[in-house]
């Protein structure tokens, strides 16, 4: 069982490189049960979107 620290690290890496099937599966299993990691996943995706809006409106 991976910790939330490990999972959020993987989630973050997933925004910067293609994860292996195993890694994606590990995340998927974890976020099904863990609301906070699920929130982290959604919110970091949102931050990416916000960052792009920010520079486009600069």
């Amino acid at each position: 069982m991976r910790s939330c620290r490990d999972i959020s690290t993987l989630v973050s890496q997933g925004l910067d490189k293609k994860l292996s099937l195993r890694e994606r599966f590990t995340i998927w299993l974890h976020v099904m049960m863990c609301t906070r990691c699920r929130n982290f996943q959604k919110q970091t995706q949102f931050i990416r979107k916000a960052a792009r809006h920010y520079i486009d409106d600069l």
Partner: peptide
């Protein structure tokens, strides 16, 4: 400051309404 020594969230992400 984000994680406990166990690797669990210290606090941790709460939901956001309508980002």
């Amino acid at each position: 400051e984000f994680f406990m020594s166990t690797g669990h969230w210290n606090g941790g992400p709460k939901a956001w309404a309508d980002p």
